[in-house]
């Protein structure tokens, strides 16, 4: 997704074709578009022509009593019928292609939860961004933790709802490197529009290197930077702001070391172990004026990642 929009980016029908499936979808899309333009000009053209040609000249002029014409009626039922069946079959063929996952696909588990995505790689890496090698099919086995979501990447032309209590599967094969947005397209509450994540298509070498460094979160990365990456990728950004404004959860600005009052009347200083329990068991202590909607990150973040987040909150709190 190139951030500098040129004029051609606004006035076009389809986003860039970044997956093998995209060309099929665009082919059918433009085929239907041409058909629509033809039929539309036929209908509106005939309408305008008749209105101009058969304007009422006097109040008494007679019109012929045409009750119908079987031949025309048959023609304009059969021809659209054939075209409709053609469109259906083309759509059906591509749909079957989208349904069959190639055998050697890279299997990534996708977890959707209220207002963020997390991707679990076969090697056990949990990342907030979907990093995939170019030219290799990727199979997404998706499930949600709370309400319905939907995994949609416009450039790959793929979309599938993510259901709690069931897996749904879809696949894609990126044809070009680049960065695209994953957007949630099934309404899921307050920050439904913030539930976006990045898809990074990289070359195979870069991908292997990314995997080897534990998903870009290797031990060499300083704690605060690792914390910042986690903050953006693991969905904290969707609810906790850095500039003091209330989104859904409390802001991180000026949080560390400050007295926090809770809904049950008790209070505590926001120090290291308070933040750790707040991450692992958020609904035990809820700050006044907020609702207990934060999902628990138990089993999602290892100790190093939690301390990285705490370092990041410290660095932001000044």
């Amino acid at each position: 997704m190139n951030t500098n929009e040129t004029q051609s980016d606004i006035w076009r029908w389809m986003p860039d074709q970044m997956s093998t499936f995209a060309s099929n979808v665009d082919g059918l899309f433009y085929f239907i578009l041409i058909l629509c333009v033809i039929f539309f000009t036929l209908i509106v053209g005939a309408m305008v022509y008749f209105v101009v040609k058969f304007r009422r000249r006097t109040d008494q002029d007679e019109t012929p009593l045409i009750k119908g014409n079987h031949t025309i009626e048959i023609i304009w039922s059969v021809i659209p019928g054939i075209l409709l069946i053609a469109i259906f079959t083309w759509g059906f063929v591509d749909w079957m292609k989208l349904g069959t996952v190639p055998p050697n696909a890279l299997d990534v588990r996708v977890e959707g939860y209220k207002w963020a995505w997390s991707f679990v790689y076969p090697e056990g890496i949990v990342s907030g961004e979907l990093v995939v090698p170019v030219g290799k099919p990727v199979k997404l086995t998706m499930s949600s933790k709370d309400v319905l979501h939907s995994f949609y990447v416009a450039e790959f032309r793929i979309k599938r709802d993510v259901l709690p209590g069931r897996y749904t599967v879809q696949w894609f094969e990126a044809t070009d490197t680049g960065e695209h947005w994953v957007q949630c397209t099934e309404y899921c509450g307050t920050s439904h529009s913030k539930m976006i994540a990045k898809v990074k298509v990289v070359s195979q070498e870069e991908y292997d290197e990314w995997i080897s460094t534990g998903g870009g979160m290797g031990d060499d990365v300083p704690l605060a930077d690792l914390g910042k990456m986690l903050y953006e990728q693991r969905g904290c950004v969707a609810c906790h702001s850095l500039d003091g404004s209330k989104v859904v959860g409390p802001t991180f600005k000026g949080l560390y070391g400050v007295e926090r009052k809770f809904t049950d009347g008790t209070s505590a200083v926001a120090d290291d172990n308070y933040l750790k329990t707040a991450i692992l068991a958020p609904n035990d202590t809820v700050v006044e004026g907020f609702s207990p909607v934060m999902p628990s990150f138990q089993g999602q973040l290892n100790d190093r990642q939690i301390s990285a987040l705490i370092e990041f909150i410290k660095s932001v709190s000044q």
């Binding site: 349904g99 069959t100 996952v101 086995t141 499930s143 209590g165 069931r166 897996y167 749904t168 599967v169």
Partner: peptide, 13 residues
């Protein structure tokens, strides 16, 4: 098309 989507798969996994 994909056995993962079936009910049994979810109950098992």
């Amino acid at each position: 098309k994909n056995p993962e989507e079936s009910l049994e798969y979810w109950q098992q996994f």
